[in-house]
């Protein structure tokens, strides 16, 4: 797979063919979900704000008796981060098993 005369130089934007390509794809997918849910939501909250304090549709709606935005940021986002980490681990575990030539799992 690799050109022997020109050794590969590690670069996250030009991953090695094989295991690293899939690994980097999983990493970027998780980072996208991480950034959008967190920074993206705060941006939307600002865009839809009707007052300088940020009052708007999200502050009027409620969920589990919380103002919706407060529930989303204070309670759902930490849960979302846990979900992202679980997904990352599941995909990396599968990816590792798929590429493993060693059946004794020494790659762990």
């Amino acid at each position: 797979m690799r050109d022997e005369r020109e050794p590969y130089n590690v670069n996250i934007f030009r991953p090695k063919k094989g295991y690293m390509t899939g690994e980097v794809a999983i990493i970027f997918a998780v980072l996208l979900g991480w950034a959008m849910a967190n920074f993206g939501f705060q941006g939307v909250l600002r865009l839809l704000a009707e007052s300088p304090d940020g009052e708007g549709i999200f502050t009027r709606l409620t969920f589990l008796a919380f103002p919706w935005h407060f529930w989303f940021t204070g309670q759902f986002l930490p849960l979302w981060f846990i979900i992202l980490c679980v997904l990352f681990n599941i995909y990396i575990d599968r990816h590792t098993e798929k590429h493993s030539h060693r059946r004794d799992r020494t790659h762990d």
């Binding site: 999983i26 990493i27 998780v30 980072l31 991480w34 967190n38 935005h69 407060f70 940021t73 204070g74 986002l77 930490p78 981060f81 992202l84 980490c85 990352f88 681990n89």
Partner: peptide, 19 residues
Amino acid sequence: YYALAYVIGWTGGYVLLLV
């Protein structure tokens, strides 16, 4: 609400650390 940035920052950082 502003201080929820601490709640988010100190949990979301673990995603970066892991991946």
